[in-house]
């Protein structure tokens, strides 16, 4: 360090405060999250065990059409896995004192949150592809599948559910079990009120669940007909986009407020 004046101190440093640089750094957070959290207890329980158990509970002994079986399973896996990492990271890192380490780096809290969203997105969408491919192979529905509807649907829904999961980690606790309680008490009712493994009734309470719109995307991706009529797909994508955006902005705002209380 041999700078002669204060301008030199900042001059030769990588630019940090631009959108592109912060976005790039958010991918480093993602890489870290994926390396660390994929095998953590709460993630495995909520992301893998719950979908299996719930799938069995929902379908055992029932006569369900193949299409509804696929859309219900993919929706449940995507929702539960995409929301499994987000609530864990902040309390986990607060407890491990690694959040403090991150916050002293030249990144904003939004960058950290974005990194968490990308990791939840990656985790959720990859896991959703597994039942989609398996079920489509078993039921031989490849011919009727429209990937140009299903793949963008998975992407938008994974992003929306990932943003939603960050809200669940807003309380400034350092105990992951605390957020797990909150998470389960919100996620499970959402799963139960959603039209999983059944046709969508567009006049019922299922409209309040964002999962309904993803189920409709998958159903449309196989049958070509939306439960919401000819503009159904537009509605589905619009609602999921709006849902994701609202929760993203809310997460930015609330985490900005509570991060100070973590120390």
């Amino acid at each position: 360090m041999t700078q002669d004046n204060e301008e030199d101190v900042f001059a030769n440093r990588p630019k940090a405060n631009t959108f592109f640089n912060q976005l790039k750094r958010s991918f480093s957070i993602t890489k870290k999250d994926l390396r660390i959290y994929y095998n953590k207890g709460p993630v495995v329980i909520q992301g893998i065990l719950f979908p299996i158990v719930l799938f069995i509970a929902f379908t055992l002994g029932r006569d369900i059409e193949n299409i509804y079986l696929i859309s219900g399973l993919v929706t449940m896996v995507l929702f539960l896995t995409a929301t499994s990492i987000g609530p864990v990271v902040f309390p986990w890192e607060t407890r491990q004192k690694t959040l403090e380490r991150l916050l002293t780096c030249p990144i904003s809290i939004r960058t950290i949150l974005l990194g968490n969203i990308w990791s939840s997105f990656t985790f959720g969408s990859l896991f959703a592809l597994v039942p989609l491919i398996l079920a489509s192979s078993i039921f031989r529905t490849w011919g009727s599948m429209k990937p140009w509807i299903i793949i963008p649907g998975i992407i938008i829904a994974a992003l929306a559910f990932s943003s939603f999961s960050l809200i669940l980690s807003v309380p400034p606790t350092d105990t992951p079990a605390n957020t797990m309680m909150l998470t389960i008490s919100i996620k499970f009712p959402l799963v139960f009120i959603s039209p999983l493994f059944m046709p969508i009734d567009p006049t019922s309470y299922v409209l309040i669940s964002p999962l309904t719109y993803f189920v409709d995307i998958i159903n449309t991706g196989f049958t070509g007909t939306s439960a919401f009529g000819s503009y159904g797909l537009l509605l589905d994508f619009g609602v999921l986009l709006a849902f994701g955006l609202v929760f993203l902005l809310l997460a930015f705002f609330l985490h900005g407020k509570t991060v100070q209380k973590r120390f």
Partner: peptide, 14 residues
């Protein structure tokens, strides 16, 4: 922060 380094009190490596 770009010109700072920080070693917090607790061992908080990943």
């Amino acid at each position: 922060q770009q010109i700072m380094g920080h070693v917090p009190e607790m061992a908080n490596v990943y």
